[in-house]
Design a protein around this nucleic acid. Sequence first.
DNA 1: AGGCGTACCTGAGGGC
DNA 2: TGCCCTCAGGTACGCC
Length: 270
Amino acid sequence: MPELPEVETIVRGLDRAISGRRIVGVTVLRPEIVQSPGRSFAQAVRGRRITGVSRRGKLAVLTLDNGDGLVVHLRMTGRLIVEPPGTIAPYPYTNVVLAFEDGSRLSFADVRRFGRMRLVRSEEAWAAEVGLEPLSTDFTPARLSEMLRVRKTPIKAFLLDQRRIAGIGNIYACEALWAARIRPSRHAGTLSKRDVARLHAALQDVLQAAIAMHGSSIDDYVDADGMRGGFQNVLAVYGRSGETCQRCGGTIVRTVIAQRGTWWCKKCQR
DNA sequence: AGGCGTACCTGAGGGC
DNA sequence: TGCCCTCAGGTACGCC
């Protein structure tokens, strides 16, 4: 489900909705979903106030007033939903509920139960494993070029590796490679300086455009208020096998790279 | 180092 | 209608 633009959208909504609220109740319906060092998750979280909600790669981070962080990975089908006071029925497939003092609550729901909610002492514990933020000023064509050099992995597999650049998933890897006119199976190290410049620009453009449209809702992504995104309506290649390329009139094909469905135009992506 | 298969889970959708 | 198969926005692990 969620890649950088979707998590960014969720996090912005959550920051507006629940920052400043105190957690007065914690219900863990699926213990395997939460991780917490030492004390029990519920004990460690209950009574804390949420001071802010932010994003790192595809991770949502709820910062608590004692400096701890609730790091949430939604994986494929996870949802973070804010429910107003008076809501009785539990959100479908809810695994963890944080209840606030005003009667509102945050539900972490996930049909497939791949998503995780982890309590961390400080950012150092996990931030080192997460790569560069593609929308930060640290991410420059020169840095990208340096990371790609001599690497033999297909460029698409490189883009999906969260330890290098954080936040790009299958949709936006496909879309950015189309925008940059680069064939997804190209070995990373073979990209020319021009290719790298186009890819760098394409990644930032695609991610920013998707954030502006509140992400892509292909199947089940919704933001913190349960609203769908709009970027699925403007996807150029993702999920469009057999359709005509809007740029060159070629045919969009589906292949498999790094075990993931990959959509691209055979004619104009080289 | 990196590719590949598999595992984790459930549900949707297509073909027959 | 219903059964069977494939696929899904992600990552981890073990094996070569």
